[in-house]
Nucleic acid binder design. Structure first.
Lengths: 217, 217
DNA sequence: ATCCTGTTGAACGCATGAGTTCAATTTGGC
DNA sequence: GCCAAATTGAACTCATGCGTTCAACAGGAT
């Protein structure tokens, strides 16, 4: 009877520190470093400070380990992004400034180690685990898009944005934020300067507002 | 001394049909189907209708085989996209209509088998071959962006678009075209309807023109 | 103290697949 | 027809790594 876990992730069997979390964290580190196939279960165990059979005590397979790791990371990344968008819940007086701030933070997160590695690992295993794309995106991109759409809907109702399809507007704003850097290979391996992030996110907001700002009458 | 090849890809040693091309084509098929690590050289050989040692006669490594395959495909995909953008070289009378046509074709290409597989394979092997991102993107995304920027510069000079940074505008237009479907996981495994492509590409052009069209005075 | 449960390290079996070897055969050029 | 280069199939070597086994061990509960 391997460790069943509560919603909080704490082990039920005895009060021991849950090694499950350590294993998942280590697994993500190693998978991100080497990729799925190149990563060895042995290496994950070492990174977690644990013996190999212990890993198999918690996860039946390398595949299971991979899936749980990606899901876990997806939830974490999503939470980070949703927190940023929540900035738009408080009433906004200076819309461009607030949007630029949100856009900048989102872009910074999307360029971060975790987000990049998550995207890579997910797409890398399309051939082997096609369902993972759906599993990860429904937890990240879709939720972020919907949260943004909610904020845009409110902004529209308060007259700060022109009437539009909020979901489409959210998709386009997100595309404007993350697209340019992707095209420059900067969501790839190269370093990104803070200035470049600001330039791109500001430009995204400017273009978005030109297209979606309510006519000033 | 294995076969040196001319620019046309024809084998110099005797007039034999160049098996190199067959091998590269088969390799892309197999890599796209299985991914780099899962694809076997044996399987590539079978797909190409060739014996395994023959593959090693043309490519020293599995790694070399992979690199050459990706580069070859990148050139091919780029050519396809550049041809679409060339549509903008002839003088345009109805800018929205032409842009929508170009956007739709680009999106259709980007959702195609070859493009998707190329992206996947490239990003999938970031951990092992980090330089491939640069190699592929410099042949595809960068060139497409630059070609688009050229057209946009001309359109600006002819007064059909407002003054802007053509490269940034190109990046943003491309982002608007391909971003939304990516967010929906539609550049993933799911099927995409023609209608959906049209909706997204039209919306991209509408938003782009709202932001970049010259003021009608 | 003594159970029970989970951990440890080391070794193992086993499958997979890269890259090679080689002798036999095909191919196209001359 | 003849040669040289390329191709073929089969078998082989060798490294890698998953998943398992097991005997010894640790640590909390009663």
């Amino acid at each position: 009877m391997a460790s069943m876990t509560t919603a909080a992730g704490r082990s039920l069997s005895h009060g021991r520190i849950d090694k499950r979390q350590a294993i998942l964290a280590a697994a993500f580190t190693v998978f991100a470093r080497r990729g799925y196939e190149q990563a060895g279960v042995q290496e994950v165990a070492e990174e977690a400070g644990v013996a190999k059979p212990t890993v198999y005590n918690h996860m039946s397979d390398k595949e299971t380990l991979f899936r749980e790791t990606l899901i876990e990371t997806a939830e974490s990344v999503a939470a980070e992004n949703l927190a940023i968008i929540d900035r738009l819940r408080q009433p906004v007086e200076d819309l461009p400034a607030v949007l630029e701030d949100v856009a900048y933070r989102l872009l910074r997160t999307c360029c971060g180690e975790r987000s990049r590695a998550l995207r890579w690992l997910t797409y890398a295993q399309v051939a082997r685990f096609p369902d993972l794309i759906e599993a990860v995106q429904s937890r990240t991109t879709s939720r972020i898009r919907d949260a943004f759409a909610d904020r845009i809907a409110w902004l529209t109702m308060s007259g700060q944005l022109r009437p539009c399809d909020p979901t489409l507007a959210a998709e386009q704003l997100l595309a404007l934020i993350t697209g340019p850097l992707e095209g420059r290979g900067r969501l790839g391996t190269r370093k990104v300067t803070t200035a470049e992030l600001r330039t791109v996110s500001d430009a995204a907001v400017v273009t978005f507002l030109r297209a979606y700002e309510a006519d000033r009458a």
